[in-house]
């Protein structure tokens, strides 16, 4: 059927130049069917318009930018291009989670240090009491007045009002 043959010729022409044989066949078809000639001419005019579509603007440094980006892609090595464990997470989430973990670790270390120091102080106090209590010549009376004796080392509080009254006398 001539229309099918015409469509084949048209599709061929849209992809490449027609061969001499194809061109001759087209001439034959269009001489027999003037409406095919009109359609063909319209298609060629449309192709002409499409050929005249201007190129999209392109930066003069496009190639240089692509090469630079490709080389920077190369620099970290292929291992760096493997998918990361948490690569699917947004980086700001990863940073926030990291900062949170560091803060928690610091708080735990400080708390642990305080607990160790408190235990050491308690152990020291217990050792002192034990030393006194277990002394062979320890007397129960001395232990009964332990707190008063312990306070003897403290500086007495100055009673300013009493001093002032004594000076007036």
């Amino acid at each position: 059927m001539s229309e099918t043959e015409y469509q084949k010729l048209l599709n061929a022409r849209l992809q490449r130049e027609l061969t001499a044989a194809e061109q001759a066949r087209l001439e034959e078809l269009t001489s027999q069917h003037p409406e095919i000639r009109d359609h063909w001419d319209e298609e060629m005019r449309l192709s002409g318009l499409l050929d005249r579509l201007p190129d999209a603007p392109l930066s003069s440094i496009f190639t240089a930018r692509v090469l630079e980006a490709a080389q920077s892609e190369e620099l970290p090595g292929r291992a760096a291009r493997r998918p990361r464990l948490f690569g699917w997470l947004p980086m700001r989430w990863v940073h926030a989670a990291t900062a949170g973990c560091v803060a928690l670790a610091l708080a735990w270390i400080v708390q642990d240090q305080r607990r160790v120091a408190l235990r050491a102080e308690l152990a020291d106090d217990l050792a002192q009491i034990s030393a006194v209590a277990l002394a062979p010549d320890a007397e129960l009376d001395a232990l009964m007045h332990f707190e008063e004796i312990d306070r003897l080392g403290e500086q007495p509080v100055v009673d300013d009002e009493l001093l002032a009254a004594l000076e007036q006398k």
Partner: peptide
Amino acid sequence: FEALVDRYKQPVIN
């Protein structure tokens, strides 16, 4: 690679 970029940059961007 540079030759390929130069050859195809305009058709691709078009």
